[in-house]
Design a protein around this nucleic acid. Structure first.
Lengths: 210, 210
DNA sequence: ATAATCTGACAAGGCCGATTACCACTTTGT
DNA sequence: ACAAAGTGGTAATCGGCCTTGTCAGATTAT
């Protein structure tokens, strides 16, 4: 498809320049998709903002949707990576501590930049079947995560022993909904209050009598 | 813009035929938007499915988006109307009964046809600024509703006296998330189980200690 | 220095779909 | 029955934007 370049150019290896262009295009996509909307963003706009030519665009990506898929995946993957890493550090803490940690890290990761929840919970919705599949896959993973914590709490006697599948889905929805609201609400909501609300809600949901 | 017709035609008043065409177009829109996706649905597709000409389309609507706005508004309005009516019937019941009623009616109304949640929670997301505004407006109304029930529960001593604003938003998100999952999940989820989960979650969220 | 190679800007081609002009046909009032 | 008015389908127009071809200039190896 794209020929591999043979030699360095402008002092930088060709591959390096290509990855730089990729990143600049992804950056521009995050900015424009969330500012004007995904549909409203034209490929020329992306290229102008990224400082590359339309020709370059097609050397790196097949279509606009690919940018959205990559960004959506990255945002989720980065958040999950951070959460998992942090949870490892509190491996043998009690349920309440672990759940608090999980949520603080997640909310912190996604509210660091308002464009992140905007992209994931607004712009990336209903775009294509592929994107819907990817969304569902991530919802499943997050639900697995929450379910595992609930089971852990149950094993420690802090929660009843029951099926937490739907509870996990509901909690993912609650988080998503609050973050979608957060990035659009006027006047602005406090990220810290969102985190508190979610923490209390999740704790109540898990410890409620079966 | 559109001239008012002066006299009856084909045995039916012109206005009647127009409203019939409107309804057929809206029906076709609900079907096609949820089956192929909003963006993928072309105006000619709508006209073919509804059995009207493209000419007729522009006599009734300014643009495709208007159909989406109307459908989105209708689905919400109808659900809210049913919920409100039903809640009036149990005006002096206890908090638990009222919340159960609220949720059963709502979930029942929206899961009666899988296309409804699909349209409202997938296809109508991130389409335009107008639609986002309308979405936010409905989220606000539903949150008001839930908040009012929570306050009522607090007044009856069934829940602590605190600020329920964020809890209400979170619960709207939980419902939305579960319904979005419901309409896409393979194998299918049971609407009744969704209703149960939401009921217990909401009850736990409201009665949790402040 | 020069040929070979690579790069990026520009613009033209081409497609798709929204919008409207036209016109043949149907219905109604006299 | 006939003229006036209303109607709806077809097809042509129009514009936007994705996609790729071209070419002049920059860079490198010999």
């Amino acid at each position: 498809m794209v020929e591999t370049s043979k030699r360095a150019y402008a002092g930088v290896a060709a591959d390096d320049r290509r990855t730089q262009r990729r990143e600049r295009l992804l950056l521009a996509a995050l900015e424009l998709f969330t500012a004007r909307g995904y549909q409203q963003t034209k490929i020329v706009d992306l290229c102008t903002a990224a400082g590359v030519s339309t020709r370059n665009f097609y050397e790196e990506f097949q279509a606009k949707e690919q940018l959205l898929l990559i960004l959506h995946g990255r945002i989720n993957a980065q958040a999950m990576h951070r959460v998992a890493a942090r949870l490892d550090e509190v491996a043998d803490a009690d349920a309440r501590t672990r759940i608090s940690t999980l949520l603080d890290v997640f909310i912190g990761s996604v509210t660091a930049d308002p464009r992140l929840p905007r992209l994931n919970y607004v712009e990336a919705v209903g775009v294509s079947a592929d994107l819907e599949r990817q969304h569902q896959e991530w919802v499943r993973r997050w639900a697995d995560f929450i379910e595992a914590e609930a089971r852990r709490a149950a094993a420690q006697g802090d929660a009843p022993d029951r099926d937490y599948r739907l509870t996990a889905f509901a909690l993912v929805g609650a988080i998503t909904g609050l973050l979608r609201e957060w990035q659009a609400h006027e006047p602005p909501l406090e990220a810290a209050e969102i985190a508190t609300e979610i923490r209390e809600l999740m704790f109540a949901a898990i410890t409620r009598p079966a």
